[in-house]
Design a protein around this nucleic acid. Structure first.
Length: 881
RNA sequence: GCCGGAGUGGCGGAAUUGGUAGACGCGCCAGACUCAAAAUCUGGUUCAGGCAACUGAGUGUGGGUUCAAGUCCCUCCUCCGGCACCA
């Protein structure tokens, strides 16, 4: 054995062996229980970042754990290869996105390999491969046939200078990122997928996902947003014709309090009214400025204008004026709302602003409408009753809603309805680097689907975008085709699909990536669903919801047997690092990488100053933030691996915090992880002969643990307790405490050298036996986190050929039992002493022991004991007057 | 604005799920080794008081429930993630 721990050498050797023997290749085996462990595939942006390292380490730890539990494990990897950054890089460097993407994939793949992940690389896929995206197109056509996919108009961000559609990300403060021109909303045609058809099932099935974090399920449920209410109409007369203004409300019980109606700027009524009202037309235009981002819309100052159009209240017959308001969203419900300022926050603010009437129609016993905040009234559906509402007076929320819905229905003006917040999924993108939408536009035949036998529609991979729209429009060889129906010249659709389509089913394709005849084959039934999915919390809604939807579509198409793609979900937290900057007066702010900064501390270890290494002058701390290019606070995993090795990187990542929590970067923390692995190596070198001899000569074979000396029993108890805790934590995916359990085990062994070397025990073999067993437990637990060092030591010390084949260690129940336990004694809930009692001591015995404690006596004497609470195996609490 | 989450020593984080707050690690202090430094090892380290035994305070804020609250309930504050064309 090498005297020194040399991660570079041992990691390369171990990785080579794994590769040579193809140990991580997964094969279907119906006789064995499978475990499909999947981490979200990376976007090939150039090189791995710490978030990737964290994500894939978590996945790898779980994979290796399941493998040692005896499961047939699949852990694949691929590339989410289409997307905007490749187009940006193309603009910057003049290189086609395909070239840039392929180069990045090659580099990042080599990085992933150097981290020692137990991946089956034979199943690798990239979403920009025609073999992959062919099936996006194929399933899209199936959806088109079923009417799940359809064409309508969509509202997009439009840059009037570049004459191009902008992604939300490309809109900075309401302006185009390259031109600086104010962004406009524009309506263009596009394809949608009818995810709302599955809304009910997507919501209901959340209850069948106990392996998902509660918060993700809640977020999805809120996103889907099922609400019960009434859809009804205000009749009106427009240009001499009878029309109806439809609205939806969840508070039909307040219908008698309506004092105005509000519609979105895009609503037909608004556009009609704007026709002969220049002022209103200007306002409608103003509303169309800005972005389509909901976060921006929601924080806009509430503005509105009257249309001059009046509608008739369906129940009271009152004339109600219609307003255009910027807070009404065309995309939700009917794009129009009834306004009840007395009982709705936004309506109230708007009415106050515009001087509109506020009419109370709900009363809550014990509350005064004129003084209590309106807010409480709206939130409280339970205790209110109708007032000033004619025949509905005195009815509760439920009674009033039923009565009003019935009356509206009788008039043919409304009915109860379920409303969803979820909108259909717009998948058309006016961008080059994506999967072509398989449609051909023919003057005679209209929009014609590309026939299956012509799939895939291959994306030309040599375009270089220049920022002025989709370069596919200029590719005559791509655009000009014959209509598949009539044979006449036609134009190919140049929009590509949202990249979320690519990532909505890749997990199924991993099961059979080599089959080019079908989307998925029978192997998918063995592996799917994914048993454990791991990825960033930022994907909690969109990606996960789209994947669930796509899975259900595939199921209904007969391609999958399961309706949910991911059994268990782990959402990992972000990787953070401190931000350092200087902001010279009148100058530009500049950020400094933490690696270039030196932190001064005082005698207590508290920070006293932060200096830039280069010039020794102070820099400011901007707090902690996610690692990003813009804040220059990223740490390159590559340098970390080169300096300390993958095992250290992995260990630190797991040790620094719970997978679901944010992880704060720390150079010294990495040093600590490295120190631990070095210590472990040195410890094994030091005891190499004992363990080897033990294995070759079977020295402890005849010894039984039950006859061991007390000292051995005590240490063994400690080791097995730690193992038991590690196992418990493993189930909770709390790998930080698993890592610390490994450290604690080594601490126990290191602090008792006499015992494990057999110096202080007779027979000495008991010490060796304890050492051999403890290390075998430690190495196996550690092998999930830092596999290279564990594997190497396992082999070197003669435990076996391959730690991967070793079973997961379980604690020995007899080692966990103790004869005596220490109990905490409290007086009035405050810790006053400790007593040691037999494990099976009776309550009376424990009480008298506790009272006999000297320090306890000081707090009890002279006072009346009201009661004594004994919590078995924990504590005694003496309550005194 | 809406939805979701998090606040514990100088720092990252533990706390058997209502039962010893601060495990483990980092940093810092002292010591050993060394001509010296690095590395390594040993001891100490929540704050305040005390030579010590020990005592008091303490888990973002303010209140409540309980024999007992970091953990449960209510109020407020701060920070983070998502908001449908970033992935």
């Amino acid at each position: 054995m090498d005297k020194h721990y040399d991660p570079g050498r041992i990691e390369a050797a171990v990785q080579r062996r794994w590769e040579d023997t193809a140990v991580f290749r997964a094969t279907e085996d119906p006789g064995r229980e499978k475990f499909y462990c999947l981490s979200m595939f990376p976007y090939p942006s150039g090189k791995l970042h710490m978030g990737h390292v964290r994500n894939y380490t978590i996945g790898d730890v779980i994979t290796r754990y399941q493998r040692m539990q005896g499961r047939n494990v699949l852990q694949p990897m691929g590339w989410d290869a289409f997307g905007l950054p490749a187009e940006n890089a193309a603009m910057d460097n003049g290189v086609p996105p395909s070239t840039w993407t392929r180069e990045n994939i090659a580099y990042m793949k080599q990085q992933l390999k150097s981290l020692g992940f137990a991946l089956d690389w034979e199943r690798e896929l990239a979403t920009c491969d025609p073999d992959y995206y062919k099936w996006n197109q194929w399933l899209f056509l199936r959806m088109l046939e079923k009417g799940i996919a359809y064409k309508t108009t969509q509202v997009v961000n439009w840059d009037p200078v570049d004459q191009t559609v902008l992604a939300n990300e490309q809109v900075i403060d309401g302006r185009g990122w390259r031109t600086g021109a104010p962004v406009e909303k524009r309506e263009i045609p596009g394809y949608y997928l009818g995810i709302t058809r599955y809304a009910e099932e997507l919501l209901a099935d959340l209850d069948n996902l106990p392996g998902w974090p509660e918060r993700v399920r809640t977020m999805q449920a809120n996103w889907i947003g099922k609400s019960f209410g009434v859809r009804f109409a205000f009749p009106c007369e427009i240009d001499g014709r009878e029309e109806k203004l439809w609205v939806f409300t969840t508070r039909a019980d307040t219908i008698m309090g309506v004092t105005f109606c509000a519609v979105a700027a895009e609503h037909p009524l608004a556009e009609r009214a704007a026709r002969d009202n220049p002022e209103l037309a200007a306002f409608v235009e103003e509303c169309k400025q800005g972005t389509v981002m909901e976060a921006d819309l929601a924080t806009l100052e509430k503005k509105g204008m009257p249309t001059g159009i009046f509608v008739t209240h369906p129940l009271s017959g009152e004339q109600i004026e219609v307003w255009v308001a910027n807070y009404v969203l065309m995309a939700y419900g009917e794009g129009a709302v009834m306004a009840v300022p007395a009982h709705d926050e936004r309506d109230f603010a708007f009415a106050k602003d515009q001087g509109l009437a506020i009419k109370q129609v709900i009363a809550i016993p014990g509350k005064d409408f004129s003084t209590d905040a309106w807010r409480d009234w709206y939130a409280d559906k339970e205790s209110g009753v109708c007032v000033h509402s004619g025949k509905y007076d005195g009815l509760t929320y439920d009674e009033a809603t039923d009565a009003i819905a019935a009356d509206l229905e009788a008039l043919g003006l409304g009915e109860k309805q379920v409303q969803w917040r979820l909108r259909d999924w717009g998948v058309s993108r006016q961008r080059y680097w994506g999967c072509p939408i398989p449609i051909i536009h023919c003057q005679a035949c209209g929009d014609v689907p590309v026939p299956d036998e012509q799939l895939p529609v291959v994306l030309p991979d040599d375009c270089v975008p220049d920022g002025s729209g989709n370069p596919l429009n200029k590719r005559e060889d791509f655009v000009n085709v014959d209509c598949p129906r009539c044979g006449q010249p036609a134009r190919r659709e140049t929009d590509t699909m949202d990249t979320f389509v690519d990532s909505s089913w890749y997990f199924a394709r991993y099961c059979c990536p080599d089959n080019n005849d079908v989307m998925v084959d029978e192997r998918v039934d063995y592996w799917m669903p994914v048993d454990q999915y791991i990825g960033g919390i930022e994907h909690a809604i969109l990606h996960l919801l789209y994947s669930r939807f796509w899975t259900k579509v595939m199921r209904d198409e007969g391609l999958l047997k399961c309706g949910e793609p991911f059994q268990r979900l782990l959402t990992q937290g972000m990787v953070l690092n401190e931000i350092f900057y200087r902001h010279p007066q009148g100058g530009r702010i500049s950020y400094y990488n933490p690696a270039d900064v030196e932190i001064k501390t005082d005698a207590k270890g508290q920070r006293s100053g932060v200096l830039l290494k280069e010039d020794g002058e102070p820099v400011q701390s901007g707090g902690i933030g996610t690692m990003s290019k813009s804040k220059n606070n990223g740490v390159d995993p590559q340098s970390l691996i080169e300096r300390y090795g993958a095992d250290t990187a992995r260990f630190f990542m797991m040790f620094a915090s719970h997978p679901e929590q944010t992880l704060e970067w720390s150079d010294t923390g990495v040093e600590g992880a490295y120190r631990f692995l070095k210590r472990l190596w040195a410890f094994c070198v030091d005891n190499e002969n004992i363990i080897k001899n033990y294995h070759t000569a079977n020295m402890g074979q005849g010894l039984a643990w039950k006859d061991a000396p007390d000292l051995i029993k005590k240490l063994r108890h400690e080791i097995h307790t730690l193992l038991s805790q590690a196992n418990f934590d493993f189930d909770k995916y709390q790998f930080n405490t698993v890592a610390s359990a490994c450290m604690k085990m080594l601490n126990v062994l290191e602090r008792n050298p006499e015992t494990i070397k057999g110096v202080s025990v007779t027979p000495a073999d008991y010490g060796w036996k304890l050492l051999e067993e403890s290390l075998s437990l430690l190495l196996r637990v550690l092998s999930t986190i830092s596999p290279h060092i564990s594997d190497t030591l396992w082999q070197e010390l003669g435990y076996g050929e391959d730690i991967l084949a070793a079973p997961w260690p379980e604690p020995d129940a007899t080692a966990l039992v103790r004869d005596e336990i220490e109990l905490v004694v409290q007086v009035n809930g405050k810790l006053r002493g400790k007593v040691t009692v037999p494990a099976d001591a009776a309550k009376e015995e424990i009480e008298s022991e506790a009272l006999a404690n000297e320090n306890v006596g000081r707090f009890v004497s002279g006072r009346e004991i009201k009661k004594i609470i004994v919590v078995p195996k924990r504590l005694v609490n003496i309550v005194v007057a």
